[in-house]
Design a protein around this nucleic acid. Structure first.
Length: 880
RNA sequence: GGGUUCGUGGUCUAGUCGGUUAUGACGCGGCCUUUACAAGGCCGAGGUCGGUGGUUCGAAUCCGCCCGAACCCA
């Protein structure tokens, strides 16, 4: 027997176990079992801060990983880092006060790596604080050559299959970042103030009447290649095909008709520029229009814009508007609101430029076919992916004009007349084409031996979309789908989409069997967390205030996975109180358990023991079912209910008599059942509260090793009769205790004789030993009805029987029953087994079992007895 | 504008393949020092389940419409 401290101190216990676990290697993946459970963990972008939204997702993964370890699965819970990216470049430029072109590519890359390592360390620290159980032997960083070499390998494989190609095509372009970006990286910002200008285009010849168009972007006039109206728009009847002169620039454009043109916008006529928006791209392609590119990569007008060349977009807009006014072709302008596509990293409005870029082919049908084989949790998350996939218009542009990213492993033949592009072979990888030459003798087309390395790098999604492949040891190991992908619903269109695409393209497989999608975490006021709103909470704050275990439980109970959850301090607090409860139960138990008692063979269980063991068996089955379905909320709720109510409130109170004063056999049975149900509870709770349960499990003398290396409880003592008997005992005990409390009596006040009349007589004799001890009085269980007056007080019809039987008359039948004299109904039920009720002319015959008559016991006057109705029995307490 | 999800005591939440008294927590009020726990126990108040119409013997639950919120997309 050991003495535990009075109170549980998470501030010292949590760091202690964090260190111990590292040494114990309890999270190690063997890799040689056939019950793999592999998590495709998100590799977060190393911002240096693991926020509460991340924490929710990692809690879910950790619950699942820990649960599956208890189930005996060989769990791989790795952790990666999605290192590459623009924000790091910008940060490094800021920190060192340089521009990335000021230093050699490789030096700049090194600076980025160094910065990233620091950020990763900070986030790992938080992950440790929160008790996540990744196997750090399987950590990966996309900036390591081993990883980005694999990214290059995936590129090479897809290029071999013509799924990666280089072409000129309009792409989204961020003029500030000076790079192409993918559709998924463009965010539509609504309600941007703009101005709508009404501009006259003069007819190209004297017979052609002028036309007025409306545009928010006059700076694109130089790029105007056509104009469009709706074919049914009467205002432009007979004018299709007419030519007009573009103001200020003088080139001629033709009016075309297209269904997509909105007759309600402006004058009904719009100019088509290359390119103002995606609609322009569509029209340009469909109507085979000219290409007049007027923007440079840094967002200025080029020589096509004549005297306006060199101006940035805002300057050009102002000057062109002035000049249009001077020319007398600017008729009107009005404020308007517009939606503008912006770069998701820097919020700069994007432009569309036609550039030679690398693309990955998007095969929508194939992606959806694979996505349908994945089990999405909750189901409807699949719909989001489907919507996005079906709306994909362009192939995925994967080249970026940056530095800190995976190099595209290709070279251009240096001969000006030769357009051969060499893509690296698998054996050359990883390779930096800007520093190394390809592993070929000469250009197969022109025989040249000089090469120019590709300076473009890959979209970081090229790295992160191969995590399942990487985690599974691809390409050396044969790929098998991972078990679980956990991620937020906000990145279904990116991460989930790209991963499905790539795994399918490379291995013709699904990346994961299950996709568990978490919701967002909102602040306590129900709004999105933001520092300016003052509702921002860092996971560490909750740990500091309460504990990591409490925080984790609050995350589990916030709502069912998939739904957004509101962070609630009160949930953390109540979880922490539950922790205290567990601690106190453990403290009590360890005072009574020793290795011998708890391992007693063939214990002489009493009803209460069999009851709690049966309940524990049931709970283990139920909770496993919830955990298998990722219903962490339901699992933890049921566990709390069981531990608090059944184990602590009822069972512990019932066995105190035996533990303190029982004979050895009786005492050992109680000890054994207590040990079994408590250690089972701790194991089941360990995924949610890993620190507390470990400390408690460790304190129990009969246990060995870590709770996290234990097995899921396999008690298998379901026994319906024992449950009925136990429920009756617990019910009577807590009812009598409640009654004492109401009466203002001390809870250990001695009572006179107690007679228990169960509502349903149990099959076997009820064991009153524990009950007598718990309520401090001799208990006699009697059959039949107590010898006191029983008064029928209420008729309670069973709707589920009467409803189907009497259909549209059910309402009347129920009404008649409820209105009748309870005593008479009772008599009919007893004598005839059925009840006749009058419904106007008719008489309805109701089966007796469909009607319950509630009765109350009334002690006859002068009797020194108290009558208490409990849920399962009538209890008579005789006064001493 | 399209799609998805959601609306349950003051707050958060469970229940939602129809069935008798709608779950738990926090908060609130009252009572109680009992050999694990006052960071506890017991009791209580508090809900026309967003509104409305329908299906049904019966609707928080199924269907239609409306209102409101969140997210994704245009």
């Amino acid at each position: 027997m050991s003495e535990l401290p009075d109170s549980y101190d998470p501030d010292s216990v949590e760091p202690k176990w964090r260190d111990n676990w590292q040494e114990m290697d309890v999270y190690e993946y063997d890799g040689d079992s056939d019950t793999d459970y592999v998590v495709d963990t998100p590799p977060p972008y190393p911002t240096g801060n693991l926020h509460i939204g991340n924490a929710l997702g990692w809690c879910y993964m950790d619950f699942a990983a820990r649960y599956h370890r208890l189930q005996g699965d060989d769990v791989l819970f790795p952790q990666g880092w999605d290192c590459h990216g623009l924000p790091t470049e910008v940060k490094v430029e800021e920190n060192n006060d340089i521009h990335r072109t000021d230093v050699p590519r490789d030096e700049f890359r090194e600076m980025c790596i160094e910065h990233t390592e620091e950020q990763i360390d900070a986030m790992k620290e938080t992950m440790g604080t929160l008790g996540f159980s990744q196997d750090w032997n399987h950590e990966f960083k996309t900036m390591d050559p081993e990883y980005w070499g694999t990214t290059q390998r995936s590129f090479v494989e897809m290029a071999d299959d013509d799924l990666v190609y280089r072409d000129e095509h309009p792409v989204n372009w961020c003029p500030r970042c000076e790079t192409a970006i993918a559709d998924a990286e463009v965010e539509a910002e609504e309600g941007i103030d703009g101005t709508l200008y009404y501009i006259t285009f003069e007819g190209a010849d004297e017979d052609t009447e002028d036309i007025e168009i409306a545009t928010t972007r006059p700076e694109l006039l130089a790029a105007c290649v056509s104009m469009a109206v709706h074919p049914d728009d009467e205002r432009f009847e007979d004018r299709i095909g007419d030519s007009f002169e573009v103001p200020l620039f003088g080139h001629e454009v033709e009016l075309i008709a297209d269904e997509e043109s909105d007759p309600d916008f402006g004058t009904g006529a719009v100019m088509i520029c290359t390119f103002g928006d995606k609609q322009d791209v569509t029209w340009w392609a469909e109507h085979d229009l000219d290409l007049r590119m007027v923007f440079t990569e840094d967002g200025r007008l080029n020589d096509e814009a004549g005297e306006y060349a060199g101006l940035d977009i805002e300057e050009a807009k102002a000057e062109i508007v002035d000049d249009l006014e001077d020319e007398g072709v600017l008729n009107d302008s009005e404020p308007t609101e517009q939606a503008v596509g912006q770069c998701w990293r820097c919020d700069t409005p994007i432009e569309i430029l036609s550039k030679e870029q690398w693309f990955v082919e998007v095969d929508q049908d194939e992606i959806l076919e694979k996505a349908q084989q994945v089990q999405w949790i909750p189901d409807h998350m699949y719909d989001r992916l489907e919507d996005w996939t079906e709306g994909m218009e362009w192939d995925w542009v994967i080249s970026r004009q940056r530095v800190f990213a995976t190099p595209i492993p290709s070279w251009f033949c240096a001969d000006e007349d030769c357009d051969h592009i060499h893509i690296a072979g698998p054996d050359e990888l990883p390779v930096k084409p800007t520093e190394e030459d390809p592993d070929v003798e000469a250009c197969p087309e022109c025989g040249g031996t000089d090469w120019i390395g590709e300076t473009d790098v890959m979209d970081t999604w090229m790295d992160s979309s191969i995590t399942p492949l990487y985690v599974r040891g691809w390409p050396e190991e044969e790929f098998e789908p991972t078990t679980l992908r956990e991620q937020g619903h906000d990145i279904i269109r990116t991460w989930a989409f790209y991963t499905l695409l790539r795994t399918s393209a490379i291995e013709d497989e699904i990346p994961w069997e299950e996709a568990l999608i978490n919701g967002m975490v909102f602040g306590e006021d129900g709004n999105k967390m933001s520092k300016s709103k003052g509702n921002f909470v860092q996971p560490e704050e909750a740990v500091e205030e309460y504990s990591a275990d409490a925080f984790r439980q609050a995350m589990a109970l916030g709502g069912q996975p998939g739904s957004d959850i509101q962070f609630q301090w009160k949930e953390v607090k109540s979880a922490s109180k539950f922790g205290t409860k567990i601690w106190n139960i453990t403290r009590f138990a360890t005072g009574h358990l020793d290795e011998e008692g708890a391992t007693a063979e063939d214990p002489a269980y009493r009803d209460a023991d069999e009851w709690i063991l049966s309940r524990a068996s049931q709970v283990a089955d139920d909770v496993a079912e919830h955990m298998d379905e990722y219903r962490f909320d339901a699992a933890l709720r049921e566990l709390r209910e069981f531990v608090w109510h059944d184990l602590a409130d009822d069972y512990l109170e019932l066995i105190k008599g035996r533990l303190y004063e029982g004979r050895p056999g009786e005492r050992n049975a109680a000890r054994k059942a207590l040990e079994t149900s408590l250690t089972a509870s701790l194991r089941m709770l360990s995924p949610f509260a890993p620190f507390l349960t470990e400390e408690a499990y460790d304190a129990i003398p009969s246990t060995e090793g870590s709770v996290h290396a234990a097995d899921w409880p396999d008690i298998d003592m379901r026994d319906e009769e024992a449950e009925l008997a136990g429920e009756l005992i617990a019910d009577v005990a807590s009812t009598v205790r409640g009654w004492k409390s109401d009466e203002g009596m001390a809870l250990n006040a001695e009572l006179g004789d107690i007679e228990v009349y169960p509502d349903e007589t149990p099959e076997r004799a009820v064991d009153t030993y524990d009950l007598s001890e718990a309520i401090n009085g001799p208990v006699h269980v009697r059959k039949g009805e107590p010898a006191i007056e029983l008064v029928p007080v209420e008729v309670d019809p069973d709707h589920s029987v009467i409803g189907p039987e009497f259909r549209d008359q059910a309402g009347q039948v129920v009404g008649a029953l409820e209105g009748a004299d309870p005593a008479e109904i009772k008599q009919q039920k007893q004598l005839d087994g059925e009840i006749e009720v009058e419904l106007g002319e008719e008489v309805a015959v109701v089966p007796g079992e469909a009607v319950e008559v509630r009765e109350e016991h009334r002690a006859e006057s002068g009797e020194e007895v108290e009558v208490i109705e409990s849920e399962h029995a009538t209890i008579l307490v005789y006064k001493e």
